[in-house]
Design a protein around this nucleic acid. Structure first.
Lengths: 338, 338
DNA sequence: CTGAAAGCGCTTACAG
DNA sequence: CTGAAAGCGCTTACAG
């Protein structure tokens, strides 16, 4: 005899009663509950997950789809999700769907359909139409984080954030301001929106014609390589850079230092995120709390899982961003060539 | 009717036959197999994971325990694992057990016992005794990567790697060589072993008394802060640093630059890993292939899962390391004060 | 408040 | 090569 049957035998009750006592669902006398509980711990009872799932229809598992864990933001969100899930007693199955990988195809074509989870969190996924269909076909609660293409449940205002970043530079007197990062590979909406915010601010300052998007991978080496190229050209060099994310900003700062350009006097750089390294590079940035977005995603998902199907559950609030001024931005040293 | 029962009905066979045809286990005529297969795709059959698990005793899932995903090495190993698992059709449940977190306790006390996986990969976990007991109690195949405390299945030779790093510096003429990184928080064996390799090399060069371990978090900011402190002291300044990992080495390089110390003339720095940023910082390092270690772990685990219980399956080979000489090391500029 | 019974959707000997 | 039946370990109406 094994599992709950043994617990029941030791406690001297039926399996049904043991089950109710353990799960807390249904009426059980306090006395019985105690007896079952001690029987369970006596025999070291651990419920069989597949049996529970099969009988109850719930897996006690949440799926997380994200485009890799190397970018700071995704790693942070993942850790936030994991932490909340752990304390809710839920398992986390991970689907690393970096765009363009064969793995991504398999995830959307096969793994999602298996439905090994009660709910799904998509982080930075930005599914295309076919992928979106797959997700919807799963018919389980979904929460998106920083993933345009869905109703964007949890995400900062990506247009506003770069508008603010750009205005910070404009306010310091910069005129030659470049937008750096993103635009390689499949165009993501987050990147497009951040560029858009920059453009809006440049327009409002009458500098719309100067708005420039220099593309690069959203990584430190990506920012480094692109910035080295730009900054090498003395005549065309901008006085300020709005980076799509801190990784790119940091790459640009490293490139500038390599070229003997002093930050901030020779070049101002502002990013988005407040990356782990931001303090070290004295980077001015629009900070967001990525871990908190991870736990907010779990909270929202749990509420959606608890709601009746079809019931719309809205996010509690939108994550905010705040300007952290460090020392990578200042008035331009060279007079802007008006 | 649902699931395999419907497939069976459409194909005009019994559930047993449908099951055998789909799983490929047991005899089925080619003709029947075809009929079942087309029935399955016709009705869009996806097996119920919990039902399969309950009936077969296999979850088709692998658990991965690791101390966070922020460190480059762990993120890479995780991606390597995910990729191999995906192509093997296995799910990955993630347990982020950063040491000292409440999550870690819960993982070892509760989650592991649920046994929601057929096998477990522990990356950089270095469990203490109580944790090790929990893992063993799970009684399922386990593979460890860079996790002392187990039979260390997949791991570079951590003593040898820093011995080589140190000898590289010694060979260039350095005498004042410091070992930087690790030793904060719970002492991990990887860190201790790398320090040990450094000590061995220093000893062999008759410099054993100068062997010094400066502790810091194994992160870029950790290396930065510790190096800034050390390098600020002009008289005691080393000419060479052996870093426990590239993150620390990179932090040290950034600190040196900040202090106006030129690399490599004013200071040589060597790391271990070949981090994504190593090229950018021209870092000389002992490179290891972390992703490959992730897939090697999966290969080994699959072989162990296939073997009869108790059968010992050894790793195919030990991951190797190679010296990548870039530009962060050279002969010391200042004559060493012999 | 408790128990007997059915059922979740598969797999797997077993018999044919 | 195929099918009927039992069983994996739970949960959940249902009846009492």
């Amino acid at each position: 005899m094994n599992g709950i049957a043994e617990v029941a035998r030791v406690a001297g009750v039926s399996k049904s009663t043991a089950s109710r006592a353990l799960s807390g669902a249904g009426y059980v006398s306090e006395e019985t509950r105690r007896r079952v509980a001690s029987a369970a711990s006596e025999v070291g009872y651990v419920p069989s997950a597949p049996a529970v799932s099969l009988a109850s229809g719930r897996t006690r598992t949440v799926g997380v789809v994200l485009p890799g864990v190397t970018r700071w933001f995704f790693a942070q969100v993942l850790e936030g999700i994991q932490e909340s899930l752990l304390s809710a007693g839920l398992d986390l199955v991970l689907y690393d769907a970096r765009s363009g990988t064969p793995g991504r195809r398999r995830i959307f074509d096969d793994f999602l359909a298996r439905r090994r989870f009660d709910g799904l969190i998509a982080v930075g996924v930005e599914p295309h139409d076919a992928e979106l269909e797959r997700i919807e076909a799963v018919r389980c609660p979904v929460v998106s984080v920083a993933s345009a293409g869905f109703p964007d449940d949890i995400a900062i205002d990506d247009i506003d954030v770069s508008r603010r970043a750009t205005e910070h530079l404009l306010g310091l007197g910069h005129r030659r301001i470049l937008f750096l990062g993103g635009g390689t590979g499949r165009r993501t909406s987050v990147e497009s929106r951040r560029f858009e915010g920059y453009r809006v601010a440049m327009d409002a300052a009458g500098l719309g014609e100067r708005a420039t998007h220099v593309h690069c991978d959203v990584t430190v080496p990506g920012g480094y390589a692109a910035a080295a190229d730009i900054l090498g050209d003395l005549r065309a060099r901008p006085t300020g850079i709005v980076a799509v994310a801190d990784e790119v900003a940091i790459g640009a700062i490293i490139a500038a230092q390599r070229l003997g350009i002093e930050i901030p006097h020779g070049l101002s750089v502002i990013g988005v995120d407040d990356h782990e390294y931001a303090g070290m590079f004295l980077l001015t940035t629009l900070a967001q709390d990525a871990r908190a977005q991870g736990s907010a995603a779990v909270d929202l998902l749990l509420r959606r899982m608890a709601a009746e199907p079809g019931g719309l559950v809205a996010p509690a609030s939108q994550p905010q961003v705040r300007l952290v001024v460090r020392n990578s931005t200042s008035a331009p040293f060279e007079t802007p060539q008006a």
